[in-house]
Design a protein around this nucleic acid. Structure first.
Length: 558
RNA sequence: AGGGGUAUCGCCAAGUUGGUAAGGCACUGGAUUCUGAAUCCAGCAUUCGUAGGUUCGAGUCCUGCUACCCCUGCCA
């Protein structure tokens, strides 16, 4: 679990403090994360997960996992497992408190009956279209249904028959009886139960009536003795009904859950709506829900984001009620920060250029001591030989003055190795540089007489005969956004066609040959990478999590 | 006859009883460096959507205005 030393205050915590000060919720803070099992979790859910579990933890309380499965036509068990896996992976535990709103269907039914008995709910025969037109508009009040004043007895009987399956889908609904002229449309007699002869992924065919979110959610919260029911801003208009329902059923302020809304996460270069994500998958823009370019938790995981980096991110962006758009650079900063501390370094050449050290004895090999991470003493041995590969980018024939790497007649340090000098540039007929002949300074290795000689640059390399091949997948933003970071309405037109670049034959130093899927590395000077699940015994596959910050690239542009 | 929200640096975001604008990201210098990374140090809102008002003093209180977001599913 992350140790977040800086507990950033947020308005929800302030509300909790006030409640506690008022003597409310003596049992302690109790939150819940309530996903609907109808899709994969994404970075926006991560914010909610961190918030709900975090609020509980920071206040010595607990957080439940509750599947909000009140609409069987949309939901499926398929998602239940992936959701649990994602939450656990993020580092949170609901212990033995995994619930389903469907667990409460019986109790919910009883509450509905109680509401009817209090004259606060009625069975309506209006069709869906009629209900819509009776509802009025944003600026005009609605009008009452002709069935609104049925007797309690009749309502009770009808509702019982609804439950018994005596009516078809859509024939009748149960509605709360509030106020058809309320300025808040949610309060214009909201539907609380509908008929759907559909089997539910958990309750099967036990029920043919299902409660609506507005009815089920507050009561599920109350049943679980949730104290703070945190949700997103679009539910703000529903809060009056949340409170109305609980009040009507006898739950008192200070002892009943309270809904608090916060602004959902928006990220530049990212889409998070379920519809859009589904479209990306179904129309083949990506390879699946866990494509490393997807903002799903499973995509981020495969991309190489760490749980810790995601938690830190959620902590750092804060929680507020203002709609905002967070720069994806913030997310990237969080993984870099984590991986900088924790990932071992290795050398990998993505676009190889052969280098022959002409004064290095043929057939000779030595093993250079290389630290795995500058912050630790762990090290490995990297083979060095007469023929090497360096990065094509690290050589330039007509180099500008500020270019600190290899150039004709120039010197560079080979990381963990010797200082070499470029003596000759070999080209093919087309004039492309295909090989470099260099000489090395035998005393320039660590501990050698000239080891402290200053050379401008240090570059990475691999030994030609020892390097192993790997496939390396380089990712860029899936969605291109405008200068404000906004995703255009036609987001499919903004899909970045170059968001995946596959380097088929990268060369990696041999120490990485037996590495497990999910292992992180920093490829020295190029970025952070993770071993992808497509790796086989024949072929290593790496995903680039994120590049290193690159002030040289920046300088070139400017 | 509409209702509900939100406005503090390029981006997030603290700022609870009015007392003289935290922090992070990004960016810019400079130091350091066998990763042009990391690290370090420095800089980065005389101003809090806007116009007034109250006050010795207002981001915080009052009034008016403006902009943006959400709401008319038997979705959540």
């Amino acid at each position: 679990m992350a140790e977040n030393t800086s507990v950033v205050s947020n308005f929800i915590q302030n509300e909790i403090n006030d409640d506690l000060k008022n003597g409310y919720y003596p049992e302690g803070v109790h939150t819940r994360f309530p996903p609907e099992p109808n899709g994969y979790l994404h970075i926006g859910h991560a914010k909610s997960i961190c918030l709900n579990f975090g609020l509980a933890k920071n206040n010595g309380g607990i957080c439940n996992l509750r599947f909000d499965d009140t609409n069987p036509v949309k939901e499926d068990v398929e998602y239940v497992d992936s959701i649990q896996e994602d939450i656990k992976w993020l580092g949170f535990s609901w212990d033995d408190r995994m619930f389903f709103a469907s667990d409460y269907f019986g109790k919910l039914y009883d509450y509905a009956v109680e509401l009817i008995k209090k004259g606060l709910a009625y069975v309506d025969d209006l069709t869906a279209e009629e209900i819509r037109s009776y509802r009025g508009t944003l600026t005009e009040p609605g009008k009452e249904s002709p069935y609104r004043n049925r007797s309690v007895e009749e309502n009770l009987e009808l509702f019982q028959k609804m439950k018994a399956g005596e009516f078809g889908d859509g024939e009748k609904v149960l509605r709360a009886k509030i106020d058809m002229s309320a300025p808040n449309i949610v309060m214009r007699d909201p539907v609380i139960y509908r008929i759907a002869h559909v089997s539910h992924h958990r309750t099967g065919d036990e029920w043919c009536i299902y409660p609506m979110y507005d009815f089920a959610h507050p009561l599920s919260d109350a049943i679980e003795e949730i104290t703070h029911s945190v949700c997103t801003l679009e539910f703000e208009d529903h809060r009056p009904f949340y409170d109305w329902l609980l009040e009507a059923l006898g739950f008192k302020v200070g002892a009943r859950p309270r809904q608090i809304e916060f602004a959902r996460l928006n990220l530049t270069n990212t889409v998070t709506s379920k519809r859009k994500l589904r479209q990306l998958v179904e129309e083949g823009y990506v390879s699946g829900w866990d494509d490393p370019r997807m903002p799903t938790i499973s995509g981020l995981r495969r991309r190489g984001y760490t749980p810790n980096s995601l938690r830190t991110f959620c902590e750092e962006i804060g929680v507020a009620k203002a709609n905002s758009l967070v720069d994806v650079a913030m997310l990237e900063h969080c993984v870099r920060d984590d991986l900088n501390k924790n990932a071992d370094r290795i050398m990998a050449v993505l676009h190889p250029l052969k280098v022959v050290i002409t004064n290095y004895p043929e057939g000779q090999k030595e093993f250079m001591v290389a630290d795995n991470n500058p912050n630790t003493s762990a090290h490995r041995y990297v083979p060095f030989s007469r023929e090497l590969y360096i990065e094509q980018e690290d050589f330039m024939e007509d180099a500008p003055k500020k270019f600190f790497r290899l150039k004709p007649e120039g010197e560079v340090r080979l990381k963990h190795g010797y200082i070499i000098k470029c003596e000759e540039v070999i080209k093919d007929e087309a004039g492309n540089v295909v090989e470099l002949h260099c000489t090395y300074d035998p005393e320039s290795k660590t501990g050698g007489a000239t080891a402290n000689r200053k050379v401008k640059g240090t570059i990475h390399w691999v030994s030609a005969e020892d390097a192993i091949e790997a496939e390396v997948r380089l990712y860029d933003y899936l969605i291109e956004t405008d200068e404000n970071g906004e995703v255009p309405a036609d987001f499919l037109a903004a899909v970045n066609k170059q968001s995946l670049e596959v380097v088929e034959h990268a060369l990696i130093e041999p120490s990485a040959s037996f590495t497990a899927v999910g292992t992180h590395y920093q490829f020295l000077r190029t970025g952070y990478f993770v071993v992808d699940k497509d790796t086989t015994s024949e072929k290593l596959v790496f995903n680039r999590v994120v590049g290193l910050k690159d002030s040289w690239a920046k300088a070139k542009k400017g």
